[in-house]
Design a protein around this nucleic acid. Structure first.
Length: 729
DNA sequence: CTCTCCCT
């Protein structure tokens, strides 16, 4: 069979090539004959034993004849490591071109690239490499196959809009519907119209394959009838063991107690094998671990339990514990959030207990805040959880909900991130690419129109877009930092005042989550170190203190352990800081039209330290002003825009000394709406001074009152009289 | 008195 190679003319598509089903091209394992110089090598033998190996010829045929190939591969079939190698071996990366395989997670890129480099017998970073944020192990001359995070490939489109160096792009785990992979699929569809030679492989779970086929079956080219024949689908069986699923007979009111009883039942009655329990959040996990430890004390010696918590706020060491085999005679019980659903795979799990709930991000464009809501999992997630029991042997899954609930009430799959996220950063990115008409952009799942309106509004009031919604010089500067637009605006303002170092440190700390260790065992230490490092100005300045204190202690692990800080998280913050600093150094912030005179005159002081502190606060307010709130009589807060009722999150530096006015960074909703990462506003009229297009005084009297207050600062208050919908005072 | 999980 002759394979079309990049650089040749595209193969003509005969009438037989359409959506190819197994009956069209049926490939038996025994039919395959090809030369492999490594076939006696143990790795080559392993490769041939993978289920996908039988489909090698079929896959290459589809890629040759169809522009989009959807591979439905069950876990363990080997698609992610093997398909790119088949393409490599068939010559798709000849002639200086490359193959890219995208992943939603960084660790996956690293481990996959290492594995594939080993199978190819090459050094990592030469022929096979990976690119993740802050780490590029590729060589522009040598690398033919690279694993890359979907967000990174999206960044790459910024500098090479047609992705010209790639002959084939494989978007793996597309069914997870991450923000970046969805955006990538939309952009790739546009790229393919301009580059008929580009091949796209989409790997998906069964339930979403048809959606992807429909998405690509029109609009690939001007010829609609032909487009349909350009999409091929292939299913590959996996290599997992059967999992026996048990449902609850009645709905359980208290899933933590039920989970506890179930684990004890499994421990007493079932053969050996570890247990994995899925709950919603950190608090539930800690509670169940505590309950199991208590119950465990009454158990006989030969059936001891080893309960272990797993969630992202734990330190690296604590997370590693779930991988160690339990001591002889003990049964490991990992109690996890959805972290163990995809990002972490634990060997030896035979029993899964699924409470059936998950916390998901929900964006409400009306309020302009992202929230966190506990909801029922989808059937796809429930299956994914169950599958965790059957990785090495047959397993069992206990669902703490009824079969009726599963069949009749659970949605088939989760809502794509695209329709439930704040899209400001993505909209800005698309604007940089010159995509003006967002409503006609081919999103696999178009987000609500209000979300776009809100994004445009936010970007406009930050000065990133002009009156006609075109990107401004400031907007391009913000986009070049690849952090969220509001934080970027703060960094640029800080840099304009000569505070780039401090601003980059704060932005880096904001971009990572959970600087302080979580979990009950750390509470005392964290309380102590917060009393040392946190200040009344709020979390931004406290974060700066933490970073500087860690720096002064040589970025040591010991310092983190002593102070109840998460070393792994701080390391990431340090990486962000380093690279962000480099990008900021390339900007000319003074030329971006920021209100520098106002920023300076508001913050003048005889004390240089005080002046610097006030300048940082003013820069933060000049970026986060849409999220301003003030305290009301019951101790809660009300936002200036929208009148939303909010509460200070327990993690806030100023929790014990709540300020009158503040700006916040984000909101989580559980039973209430909680504000996280808050900065104290000492002078609320700064809002009017720093964002005159957004805030004005409600009445002339209010303005006069404020004017009296402002006289000390010497700022001309005429600036505040512009019309706006937003009122303060 | 408190936080699903990723990612640029």
């Amino acid at each position: 069979m002759a394979f079309w190679k990049p650089g040749d003319d595209a193969p003509t598509v005969g009438s037989h090539a359409g959506i190819l089903l197994d009956k069209d091209v049926h490939v038996e394992g025994s039919d395959i004959l090809f030369y492999n110089p490594y076939e006696t090598h143990p790795l080559a033998v392993q490769r041939q034993r993978l289920p996908i190996f039988q489909y090698r010829k079929h896959i290459l045929y589809l890629v040759e004849t169809c522009r989009v190939v959807i591979i439905v591969g069950e876990p363990g079939c080997g698609k992610t490591t093997q398909v790119p190698q088949y393409l490599l071996e068939a010559g798709w990366a000849d002639g200086g071109r490359s193959i890219a395989c995208t992943q939603p997670r960084r660790v996956a890129c690293v481990t996959l690239a290492h594995r594939v480099a080993e199978e190819q017998g090459v050094r990592i970073g030469d022929k096979v490499g990976y690119t993740i944020r802050w780490e590029d192990r590729t060589n522009s001359e040598l690398t033919r196959l690279k694993y890359v995070t979907d967000g990174m490939l999206l960044q790459e489109i910024m500098s090479d809009p047609l992705l010209t160096k790639y002959s084939v792009i494989m978007v793996d785990e597309a069914h997870e519907r991450s923000l970046h992979s969805d955006a990538l699929l939309g952009l790739l569809k546009k790229v393919m119209r301009k580059r008929p030679s580009l091949r796209l492989i989409v790997s998906s779970a069964t339930m979403q394959a048809a959606d992807f086929r429909n998405f690509f079956a029109s609009g690939l080219s001007a010829d609609r009838a032909n487009d349909e024949r350009q999409v091929g689908i292939l299913s590959v069986d996996g290599r997992c063991y059967p999992v026996d699923v048990h449902y609850s007979l009645r709905a359980k009111a208290d899933y933590i107690t039920s989970a506890c009883e179930l684990v004890l039942m499994i421990n007493k009655q079932k053969p050996k094998g570890d247990v994995l329990v899925f709950l919603t959040g950190q608090e539930d996990v800690d509670t169940l671990v505590h309950l199991l430890k208590e119950a465990g004390e009454r158990l006989a010696r030969h059936q001891l339990l080893l309960p272990l918590p797993l969630y992202s706020g734990l330190s690296g060491t604590e997370q590693m514990r779930v991988f160690h085999p339990a001591p002889k005679g003990q049964r490991k019980v990992v109690v996890s959030t959805n972290m163990a659903e995809t990002s972490i795979t634990i060997d030896g799990i035979v029993y899964v207990v699924d409470a059936g709930f998950v916390k998901v991000r929900a964006y409400s464009p009306e309020l302009g805040v992202e929230r966190l809501v506990t909801t029922s999992v989808s059937r796809a997630e429930a299956e994914q959880r169950a599958g965790r029991a059957g990785r090495l042997q047959a397993g069992e899954c206990y669902r703490l909900y009824t079969e009726e609930w599963f069949v009749q009430h659970m949605p088939p799959h989760p809502l794509p991130a695209m329709v439930r996220s704040d899209l400001s950063a993505l909209v800005l990115q698309l604007k940089v690419l010159g995509i003006e008409d967002l409503l006609r952009f081919p999103f696999p799942s178009p987000p609500p129109t209000q979300t776009f309106c809100k994004s445009l509004e936010v970007l406009y009031c930050l000065g990133a877009l002009d009156d006609s919604c075109h990107i401004t010089g400031l907007g391009e500067a913000l986009a070049s930092l690849s952090i969220d637009p509001m934080t970027a605006k703060f960094v640029v303002a800080g840099a304009a005042l000569g505070l780039q170092d401090e601003a980059c440190k704060i932005a880096a700390m904001l971009s990572v989550r959970d600087v302080w260790l979580m979990g009950r065992s750390h509470t005392d230490k964290v309380t102590f170190s917060k009393s040392k490092l946190c200040v009344a100005e709020g979390d931004h300045i406290s974060h700066l203190n933490v970073f500087n204190a860690w720096e002064a202690n040589d970025f040591s692990h010991d310092f983190c352990a002593e102070m109840g800080l998460n070393y792994k998280v701080l390391r990431r913050a340090r990486d962000v800081y380093k690279h962000l600093s480099r990008r900021v150094a390339r900007l000319r912030p003074a030329a971006l039209g920021l209100p520098l005179d106002t920023l300076k005159s508001l913050t003048q002081s005889d004390n240089p330290d005080e002046e610097q502190l006030q300048q940082l606060c003013a820069c933060i307010i000049s970026a986060f002003f849409p999220y301003a709130a003030h305290r009301v009589s019951d101790g809660s807060y009300v936002t200036v825009q929208g009148g939303l009722n909010l509460h200070l999150h327990g993690s806030c530096a100023a929790y014990n000394d709540p300020p009158e006015w503040l700006v916040f960074n984000d909101v989580v909703q559980t039973d209430r709406l909680w504000m996280r990462d808050c900065l104290t506003i000492r002078h609320p009229m700064w809002l009017v001074q720093l964002a005159p297009h957004f805030y004005r005084y409600r009445s002339a009297q209010d303005r006069l009152q404020a004017q009296d207050l402002l006289q000390d600062t010497g700022v001309d208050s005429k600036d505040t009289e512009r019309p706006s919908n937003w009122l303060i005072f």
